[in-house]
Design a protein around this nucleic acid. Structure first.
Lengths: 134, 134
DNA sequence: GTGGGTGCAAACATTTTGCAGTAGA
DNA sequence: TCTACTGCAAAATGTTTGCACCCAC
């Protein structure tokens, strides 16, 4: 996984640092959207010295490079997930906040809105209780 | 509209103040989700003295009473809209941030997910460019 | 009169920015 | 070497809380 992470950084002409490698590995391992705080905790556990600002800067850089993308799952925090994951939506537990994937898209792939609204992307979030919470 | 606003406050045993009336009227007039800042600007225009904290407290109170509900349209700010509006979704312009309603629900009303996820609510947001922005 | 509602200030949480130092290419 | 990247500190943004005062009931 380290190799894959290195490769991704090199492909995007980004310098390889411990923090970046670890964050990318975290994304590769993680199948659900993660936020800045989770990344900081992960880096702390891995004994990699970091800083909140750096985490945000990494996220911004990766997102700009198209490695990860912003996901809107909460009013409170920004979440990100790997950009190359297939199209999917999220089921968010209103009790514990856990985010699960919904693999099949519930909308027709091509959404055509009346009006002159030019669709670029769409997000579907399902709120409810996950298996543990009910 | 003032009468309707008064009536709503009375029905929920909430005291009638200038700020609350104005905010409710704003919600009644407004067909799209609004945020705290827009409310403050509206109150300022109406020459009603207020404070950010008060606006948030009103929003929290109204939401607790079920008069309005939180809408997830952005990563940045909380938005609210009248609770009694019929089920609908939103089209959000990625350029100017304008929010339009999508009246017909693009999902089947009853979403049944595999897994043991108990669905309570769902949100669909369509991102793209509104008529003015393309 | 009483407690719900408000204004003000200060705290809080998340995210961003400035700047000087460090280290990857 | 050169500059992308980082750490630290401080600021900016959005939201919440404490407290004393005031007004709707």
């Amino acid at each position: 996984m380290t190799d894959r992470a290195k490769q991704l950084l090199q492909q995007h002409a980004l310098r390889i640092t411990d923090a970046r490698l670890a964050v990318l590995i975290f994304f590769l391992k993680q199948q659900y959207p993660i936020d800045a705080q989770q990344i900081e905790e992960y880096l702390a556990k891995k004994k990699i010295k970091t800083d909140t600002a750096t985490v945000y800067r990494m996220l911004t850089t990766f997102a700009d490079e198209g490695l990860i993308k912003k996901v809107r799952v909460s009013d409170e925090k920004l979440h990100f997930e790997l950009a190359d994951r297939p199209h999917h939506h999220h089921a968010i537990c209103t009790n514990c906040g856990k985010i699960e994937d919904i693999e099949k898209c519930l909308l027709n792939q091509q959404i055509q809105l009346e009006k002159s609204f030019q669709v670029q992307d769409h997000a579907v979030e399902i709120y409810g209780l996950c298996a543990n919470c009910h």
